[in-house]
């Protein structure tokens, strides 16, 4: 019989299985229409926003002509509305991206456990650590590609309409993407610890902690209150995503707008007026890695 002629299956390696699970997660995102819904809605959002900027550009040009000027300087204060508009646009990208990273990943492990899909998968020669790592990898690829694409669409569109390019767009987008990697890692960790619903709520609260930290720091430095500044630092340590955004926003503002911010002594919880500390970037990387390792460890010990 042909059965006996075929070999016994070789146990696949950790790396191979990780990639296989990551591939499954990517296909799942495509097949469950996650990708298409995201692309359509994002197209609508970016189009809407860019149309606003297009009208803004027209208004500013008209004002320059009315004032009898030949044109506007791209780096001057006259262009500040465009700078703000692009920075706010990127803030929306960061916020929506964080939201979408949590929502897409919230059930990465728990949903499969809850609906019973996990049992037959775990009975295969795949280690649970490889499974968690593969899930994280797959969702990180989806989330990071998505935010990178939206960022490129928004900044590229603004450039085409107004000719404005932020001073350092790549570091800015890089910091936003790092925040997405951290959020995805923490959401995967939560997905091995809690039910899907509890995890979603938990990660949003964490996100809120980061945002609260940013506000406390801002008020603290504005009001010169060391206690508030310390509280803000603690919050940034617990959830560095908001600090990463503030660091990204620094790279999105040109010198003229940054000077405005400094004059206001940084009294702006949405835009940062100084670059992010290197230590905090390293900590964010470490946090993402620790979260995934903790998830791998936790899931390996769980009864299914």
């Amino acid at each position: 019989m042909s059965d006996s002629a075929l070999s016994t299956p070789q146990t696949p390696s950790f790396g191979r299985n990780t990639l296989l699970i990551a591939e499954l997660s990517l296909r799942e995102a495509v097949r469950k229409r996650l990708v298409i819904v995201l692309l359509v809605l994002t197209g609508a959002f970016v189009g809407f926003y860019l149309y606003g900027i297009f009208r803004l550009e027209g208004t500013l040009d008209q004002r320059a002509i009315d004032a009898g000027l030949d044109g506007r300087s791209i780096s001057g204060l006259a262009n500040a509305p465009i700078v703000y508009a692009s920075a706010f646009g990127m803030y929306l990208v960061f916020f929506l991206g964080s939201l979408m990273a949590v929502l897409s990943t919230v059930g990465a492990v728990s949903a499969d456990v809850e609906n019973g899909v996990m049992q037959s998968v775990i009975a295969r020669p795949v280690t649970r650590a490889a499974l968690v790592l593969g899930r994280w990898l797959g969702f990180t690829i989806v989330n990071v590609s998505y935010i990178a694409l939206v960022s490129a669409a928004l900044l590229g569109g603004i450039y085409l309409i107004t000719g404005f390019v932020p001073p350092a767009p790549l570091p800015a987008v890089g910091l936003i993407l790092l925040a997405i990697v951290v959020i995805t890692g923490l959401t995967v960790l939560g997905s091995t610890l809690f039910s899907t619903l509890a995890n979603g709520i938990g990660v949003f609260v964490l996100y809120g902690v980061g945002f609260a930290g940013g506000i406390l720091s801002t008020i603290g430095s504005f009001a010169d209150s060391p206690t508030l500044v310390t509280l803000g630092k603690v919050a940034n340590f617990v959830m560095p995503t908001n600090a990463l955004w503030l660091g990204a926003s620094y790279h999105l503002q040109n010198a003229a707008v940054l000077q405005l911010g400094e004059m206001a002594r940084g009294a702006n919880p949405i835009f940062g007026s100084e670059p992010i500390a290197v230590g905090l970037v390293l900590w964010a990387c470490a946090l993402a890695i620790l979260a995934v390792l903790a998830a791998m460890w936790r899931f390996s010990r769980k009864d299914l």
Binding site: T8, Q10, T11, G116, V117, A123, R124, P125, V126
Partner: peptide, 17 residues
């Protein structure tokens, strides 16, 4: 995993993707 590669399993709750 080397042991599990020689096992087959039909769960009581047969739920798949």
């Amino acid at each position: 995993p080397a042991v599990r590669s020689r096992l087959g399993f039909l769960p009581e709750q047969f739920r798949f993707q």
